[in-house]
Simulated scan of single mutants.
Amino acid sequence: MKNTDLNEERLKDEIAQARSAAQVADASEPRAQSVHYDCKSGQTVIELQNGASFLFPPELVQGLVDASPDDLAQVELTPSGEGLHWETLDVDLSIPSLILGIFGTKAWMAELGSRGGSVTSTAKARAARQNGKRGGRPRKTAQDT
């Protein structure tokens, strides 16, 4: 047997394994059948193959924050249905990650978290006033850590 025959056999085996893994992923992970940007709501809308829909505001996603509606409308679905792609913005996103709430790198997610914590609202102001009347924010105990 030639050395090239062994490589061809190995390649055929690897292709078969990859196809099998893709079938498992297709059956167990969310796959999209369509995607579009809805200008009215300001949301990117993903229609999944199972009939469910997933929407997200682009301002949460790293790389889409300052994008124009025209750029956001240029979203494409990857052939596998597993990802989104914006050619003009050079942004690629994983649909399973989006559904899990992962909108970018760890640093980006930390920034989103800090922005959320700094948001003011009447409920937060009321809670701060109540805590102030009681001597401020409750101290952490050894049990809290």
Rank of each mutant, 00 (worst) to 15 (best):
M1V: 12
M1A: 13
D5W: 10
D5I: 09
L6Q: 11
L6H: 09
N7W: 09
E8F: 10
R10A: 13
R10P: 01
L11N: 09
K12Y: 00
K12H: 08
K12D: 05
D13M: 13
E14C: 06
I15E: 03
I15Q: 09
A18W: 11
A18P: 03
R19T: 01
A21R: 15
A22N: 12
A22S: 07
Q23C: 03
Q23G: 00
D26M: 14
P30V: 11
R31T: 10
A32T: 05
Q33A: 07
C39E: 06
K40V: 04
S41T: 15
Q43C: 05
T44K: 02
T44Q: 04
V45D: 00
E47P: 01
E47F: 04
L48F: 01
L48S: 04
N50W: 01
N50S: 05
S53R: 15
S53G: 07
S53H: 08
P57I: 01
P58Q: 04
V61D: 00
L64Y: 03
L64A: 01
D66G: 02
A67C: 12
S68Q: 10
P69H: 12
D70T: 12
D71L: 14
A73L: 01
V75Y: 05
E76N: 04
T78V: 06
T78S: 08
P79S: 10
P79L: 06
G81V: 08
G81T: 11
E82Q: 11
G83I: 07
L84M: 05
E87K: 15
E87Y: 13
T88D: 03
L89G: 09
L89R: 13
L89K: 14
D90C: 08
D90T: 12
D90Q: 12
V91W: 10
L93N: 02
P96R: 13
S97W: 06
L98N: 09
I99R: 14
L100M: 08
L100Y: 04
I102A: 01
F103N: 03
F103Q: 02
T105Q: 09
K106A: 02
A107S: 12
A107H: 09
M109H: 04
E111F: 05
E111Q: 11
L112G: 03
S114K: 15
T120S: 12
S121T: 14
T122S: 07
K124T: 04
A125R: 15
A127S: 11
A128D: 02
A128M: 13
R129P: 00
Q130I: 15
N131G: 00
R134L: 13
G136P: 11
P138S: 02
K140Q: 07
A142Y: 03
A142I: 13
A142S: 11
Q143Y: 11
D144V: 13
T145F: 02
